[in-house]
């Protein structure tokens, strides 16, 4: 049988049904190319999409598998509400502070007139430090600012200051924040660097030329232009902190009531004994993450119009 698709041209002027048939064959052939992506999508669905969706489905079921909204009512329990609030608070705090720190460093190396070598060093280091999250990071902070940590001991023995008497505690909210910021700042540097590089020096010069001061330039041009990228980056940092499990687990051993810790405890079955509530917790997290990624994408599109 001759291969119809090989000679199929969509715009032949033959009799209608033949032209339609050829058009169809051509379409089929073109659609068939998508089949080449099948292995990838099968994998992704099997090990990411379906497992995640099954949690969403599970959050609407009770132990027998019947439809229920009870799990979401349980989400309103004070300890769960407070864990969401603490996690949001921690993520927002470290996203804003880490974002600010990252912005200042990125500004210093891209517009601040520092030597080129420093720039590439900071970029490399940011790559390392943003990957240096999890257990080792927690250890580094315990060794530094823990009760027997190097700096804690140093301050006590040399200056006679006891950090822990001043109210500081590494295993508290602020201690955890300080630790999270360690990977938030370099991530911010990596994300915001391209946006800062996209700021044309001619904008600054044009505004100076028209009589604007440095403050007026930042107020009218610099900050408005950067704002979408900045907020997008901070949202990404927020999500990054919200989903982080390893650092919190290693640092506090599950003492702080964070959502990821709660979910982890649920999986291991050692605190709560209601898997469907666990699914609802996970669902809540997915919603927050989805909302932030949508906001991120929207802001990115806004800023890519301006900064190419």
């Amino acid at each position: 049988m001759p291969d119809i698709s090989a000679q199929g041209r969509p715009h032949t002027t033959d009799a209608g049904h033949i032209s339609f048939f050829r058009l169809y064959a051509h379409r089929i052939r073109r659609q068939a190319r998508w089949l080449g992506l099948a292995p990838f999508f099968i994998f992704l669905f099997a090990f990411m999409i379906i497992p995640a969706s099954s949690l969403i489905v599970g959050s609407f079921q009770d132990n027998t598998g019947a439809l229920t909204f009870d799990n979401f009512i349980h989400l309103l329990k004070p300890n769960i509400v407070s864990s969401y609030l603490i996690t949001i608070n921690l993520s927002a705090t470290t996203a804003v502070l880490g974002g600010l720190g990252g912005l200042l460093i990125a500004y210093a190396i891209s517009l601040g007139g520092l030597p080129q070598g420093i720039r590439s060093f900071v970029s490399t280091f940011s790559g390392v430090a943003s990957n240096f999250a999890g257990v080792p990071l927690a250890f580094a902070f315990i060794s530094t600012l823990g009760r027997a940590g190097f700096i804690t001991v140093l301050l006590r023995s040399i200056f006679g200051i006891d950090l822990y008497d001043t109210g500081f505690n590494l295993y508290s909210f602020w201690g955890l924040s300080l630790t999270y910021i360690y990977f938030q700042i370099p991530l911010m540097v990596l994300i915001i660097q391209p946006a800062l590089d996209g700021m044309k020096k001619e904008w600054r010069e044009a505004s100076e030329n028209l009589g604007a001061s440095a403050f007026q330039y930042w107020f009218h041009v610099g900050i408005p232009v950067l704002l979408p990228s900045l907020s997008a980056a901070v949202i990404l940092l927020f999500g990054n902190a919200f989903g982080a499990y390893a650092t919190a687990y290693a640092l506090t051993g599950g003492l702080i009531n964070l959502v990821p810790i709660l979910i982890g405890a649920q999986i291991r079955g050692n605190v709560l004994h209601d898997p469907n509530l666990g699914y609802a917790l996970a669902f809540g997290m997915i919603i927050i993450m989805t909302a932030s990624i949508i906001a991120y994408l929207w802001l990115q599109r806004l800023s890519s119009r301006w900064i190419k």
Binding site: K200, W203, E205, A206, N209, V221, V225, W306, I307
Partner: peptide, 11 residues
Amino acid sequence: MVFQNYALFPN
């Protein structure tokens, strides 16, 4: 001053 790449404020 007029610049080669226009330098209009994008916002």
